[in-house]
Design a protein around this nucleic acid. Structure first.
Lengths: 252, 252
DNA sequence: ATTGACGCTTGATGCATGTCAATCTGAGTT
DNA sequence: AACTCAGATTGACATGCATCAAGCGTCAAT
């Protein structure tokens, strides 16, 4: 009994200071003592499973959530059954930032595969941030980054065609996964073709055809959810301007 | 000489506490003393004119900007001359939030008509916010609100057709203007058809045809930049779910 | 193994919207 | 007033992608 308790405690509770994501997450740039203080307010639940909700649209906002392992999608139930996917969230990414304003969730968040999630009670976090300037700054940066990424997405949906959209989606997945230490060219997609289409503003059929075409063109090897990127530079080129941060272009 | 100086001082310098936008802007919910402290760090320049830039993509980020009167567009120069309009900013709205993350502006901001703008040096603001909890909270809310609005825009670009997009644009302008005390049904658009199209992900010609059609259908009266909304409810209906916050729909 | 359900793929067709081109309008400018 | 020029409108046409429809692989339950 005592034995099991110790084991499960070790398994579930990974302190921020030992978390492999701390360089991507809230603790970035904090002193060890401040990380301890942050750590103390974070709740860690048992792993969640495919289909579980972190929250649903309309619920009161209490916490932010950080993906530790696995993946989550956020979506807005649109009129009549259909749902618009708003984003996919990989380890190290924060969910719920849009709900601070109204203290109420406008969208829902559902886990796509077995995932470990950290819960950050927002009110306590806000109090803590007020006394740790670098944490406050980090929080501003995270909110700002989200806004910047949304702007990229607006550009994608406003100006790019189907091919460019899927290429951008794949290169984005690639770079986000590699930043977390995973292969940038060999990965599993945890979301369905339908969800990818919804996210990119395309029909399922279009997504499917493009996967086929990319494979025919030697850019990818695809089997179901498994993707091997064979020609990443070509995909980045196709995706448009921001391939990664490898080459800046000077504006004059 | 002394006379002129006094006059221009009165004209340009409108303290936050006397600003008609204070209920929409940063001072919201602050005590009079705290408003004074905020007021002390804000820079107010002479009016800017059509075509002037607040900042350009690539420049170092130093300040946020708040539109006091007039209007501003933000845009990203896309490859080869074309520009993607990212947003239009009306009085009370804050510009530059996306640049906090990288301390560098990713987009440019250009004023569309003669405008008065408040400049908020961000570093000093951040220091101030650390010592005024309600200001810090207000800042989180503003950042969060921006993220929520971007999500609405993603939904618009991802799922809506041309008619719904223009209807959403017009109802958004209407509600934002009316919240600032202007008529919700009679206003001037400071941006060109081309800029509207870029913002909505549509060709200029499509925008123009829709204006014509809306007028034929008795929804609007349009003359050049002057718009009179004749049937606001119909436009809101056409725009999709969020007409305004007048009627909530219960989710079950 | 059989069944059914679901997600994915592939083909055929139509439409909304982009593109190209011509004309029109209004605001300056000389 | 005549000229100029950018923006706006309108029409004709082309096409990318959605839609509809059918078939196929995969997995879970029985």
């Amino acid at each position: 009994m005592t034995q099991r308790k110790v084991i499960s405690f070790d398994t579930i509770r990974v302190a921020c200071k030992n978390c492999s994501l701390s360089q991507l997450c809230l603790p970035m740039g904090l002193s060890p003592e401040d990380v301890e203080r942050l750590d103390a307010i974070i709740k860690r639940s048992r792993p969640l499973h495919r289909g579980d909700h972190l929250f649903r649209g309309g619920e009161r906002f209490r916490s932010l959530y950080v993906v530790k392992t696995g993946s989550v999608k956020t979506y807005a139930p649109s009129e009549e059954g259909g749902e618009q996917v708003l984003g996919f969230h990989l380890p190290g990414e924060i969910i719920g930032l849009d709900a601070i304003d109204k203290s109420c969730h406008a969208c829902s968040a559902k886990v796509l595969e077995t995932s470990a999630i950290c819960e950050v009670p927002f009110q306590r976090f806000e109090e803590l941030a007020a006394s740790i300037p670098s944490l406050q700054h980090q929080m501003y940066r995270l909110l700002s980054k989200e806004i910047g990424q949304d702007a990229d997405m607006l550009l994608l949906l406003g100006k790019k065609n189907a091919e460019e959209r899927l290429a951008a989606f794949l290169t984005s997945m690639s770079s986000r996964l590699s930043r977390r230490g995973l292969s940038p060219t060999d990965f599993y997609l945890s979301m369905s073709r339908h969800e990818i289409g919804s996210y990119l503003g395309l029909a399922v059929e279009t997504v499917s055809r493009l996967f086929t075409r990319f494979q025919e063109d030697g850019l990818l090897r695809v089997d179901r959810k498994h993707v091997e990127v064979l020609d990443l530079p070509a995909l980045e080129m196709m995706a448009g301007s921001p391939p990664s941060n490898t080459h800046q272009q000077r504006s004059n």
